[in-house]
Every structure is written in structure tokens, then in C-alpha cells.
């Protein structure tokens, strides 16, 4: 346990002590701010009929953040250590492969979530300055953060996997982005393929991340969706573990 905590702290200090970390946070804040401005313009003088959090998710920029941030956050995790050689010093300490994988993943997840924290402020700002939006839906806000946690978990585990497969940060980031984009685009399958009764439409509906996020942002937590994200996250972490282990049998 002690090495695990030490490694998580090292990961976090890698993000928060370096300029890269703040660049990522800055970029996320910039895009979030743009989101907010677009919502404000859309709402200007019109009645408002959905939770503010949901309005965020209907915005393309929001998804852009979700797709771009994980590759940038995780590309360093394994690839950089392999490239600089510190991977060898790390793997010759009495630390198990599993601990290393979990520590890298935890560090990335904590950083990712911390970059989203300012999102919480936006509904409060809206309530402060709007005329009729007096009640704040805390459930929706909570659901959103849980949704982000699950999303972050999945995309970051994909990122860890891609990073463990290569020595090049660029390749790691590209692979993460492409895999993530693939998952995201699968959301549109049930729009593209005409809905007809049958198992396909049920499956397509269940893997649609846009649908999932809509539910989360309304404050609805569906156990099936939670299992969907958790199981995929575990799968990719398992694959990462295998990739780390592969130096033994390659």
C-alpha cells in the first residue's frame, strides 16, 4: 500500500508541479468557459426548460473536452517512463505491476476530476444572475460529477492502455484519441441505423454515451450504465496490466 500511495503522489506532483498540467487545466477551463458563454447566449431572454448541467452536455465543445483531455493526460504515464528509461528503475523496485498500473490510473483520474471542479461553480453563477432560475438541482449536479467520474475512468483507462503499449507519447495520445472517438461515435449508431424493433436497436441504445450523459446530467443514475462504464474500465486496466507484464514474455 505504501508504494502505491507514494506512486500516486509522484503522479500527481508530475501534473501539478509541471507546466503541462496547468496548460491542460487552462485549456479545459477555456473550453468550459466557451460552453458557458454559448449557453448564456442561447438562454438570453428565453424561458429555460432543462437543467443547466444538461445544457452543457448538449454542447459539442463539452464532448471535445471529454475526447481531448484523456489522451493528453495519460500519454505521459507509461510511454514517457519507457522512453526516458525510468521505467526500468521503477520496475526493479519491490512494487507489483498491478500497483504501478493502479497508481498511474488513480493519479490521472484525480487530476482529470480536479480539472472539472470549476464546472460546479457555473450553475451557482447562473442562479445568482438569472431572474427566474431560483432552484438549483443538486441531484443533477451530483449526477453530472458521477457521470464525469465514470467517463473519466473509462477514457483514462483506455489512455493508460495505449500508453503502456508504446514508447512514444504521440502514438499513445493518437491511439487513445482514436479509440475514444470510436466509442463516442458508437453513440450515433442508433441515430444512423433506423430504429426498428430488435436486439440491435436495444444494444445501440445501451451503448450510446450521449444518452448516458443525458441521464446523468438530469440526476438519473442507472445501475446498468454504471456497470457498463465500470466493467469497461476494469477491462482496459486489465489490458494495461497485461501490457506492462508483457516485458516478461516478449
Amino acid at each position: 500500500m505504501r508504494p502505491y500511495i507514494t506512486l500516486v503522489r509522484r503522479e500527481l506532483s508530475g501534473f501539478y508541479v509541471s507546466l503541462t498540467g496547468y496548460l491542460i487545466i487552462g485549456a479545459i477551463q477555456f473550453l468550459l468557459g466557451l460552453c458557458f458563454v454559448i449557453i448564456l447566449q442561447a438562454l438570453d431572454g428565453k424561458p429555460f426548460d432543462m437543467p443547466v448541467t444538461e445544457a452543457f452536455f448538449n454542447n459539442g465543445l463539452f464532448w471535445l473536452i471529454l475526447l481531448l483531455a484523456p489522451p493528453v493526460i495519460t500519454m505521459r504515464s507509461f510511454a514517457h517512463e519507457k522512453f526516458s528509461g525510468t521505467y526500468e528503475t521503477l520496475m526493479t523496485t519491490p512494487v507489483s505491476d498491478g500497483q504501478v498500473v493502479m497508481a498511474k490510473f488513480t493519479g490521472a483520474l484525480i487530476f482529470f476530476l480536479s480539472a472539472w471542479l470549476p464546472l460546479i461553480a457555473y450553475p451557482f453563477i447562473l442562479r445568482e444572475y438569472s431572474v427566474d432560475l431560483t432552484d438549483l438541482d443538486l441531484g443533477a449536479l451530483g449526477g453530472t460529477m458521477i457521470g464525469l467520474l465514470l467517463y473519466g475512468g473509462l477514457y483514462l483507462s483506455i489512455g493508460c492502455f495505449a500508453s503502456a503499449m508504446t514508447r512514444s507519447q504521440i502514438i499513445a495520445a493518437m491511439n487513445t484519441f482514436v479509440l475514444g472517438l470510436g466509442f463516442f461515435l458508437a453513440s450515433f449508431l442508433h441515430h444512423i441505423i433506423p430504429v426498428k424493433p430488435g436486439w440491435q436497436s436495444v444494444v445501440f441504445h445501451h451503448i450510446s454515451q450521449i444518452e448516458h450523459m443525458r441521464d446523468f446530467s438530469r440526476g438519473m443514475l442507472d445501475i446498468r450504465q454504471i456497470i457498463f462504464y465500470l466493467s469497461l474500465t476494469v477491462l482496459f486496466l486489465f489490458l494495461t496490466h497485461k501490457a506492462v507484464e508483457s516485458r516478461r514474455w516478449k
Partner: peptide, 23 residues
């Protein structure tokens, strides 16, 4: 190891403490 890879973004003392804890 060969070529002595180190975390260049850490300070000497911080690095040694990190490694001691890791071990």
C-alpha cells in the same frame, strides 16, 4: 541501469525520498 535514467523534473532530495519510500 545503464545510462542512469532519472526523473529530471524532481529535486535531488525529493527524488531520493521518493525512491526510498517506493522501496
Amino acid at each position: 541501469p545503464e545510462n542512469n535514467p532519472l526523473h529530471v523534473d524532481m529535486r535531488v532530495r525529493e527524488y531520493l525520498k521518493f525512491r526510498a519510500r517506493l522501496k
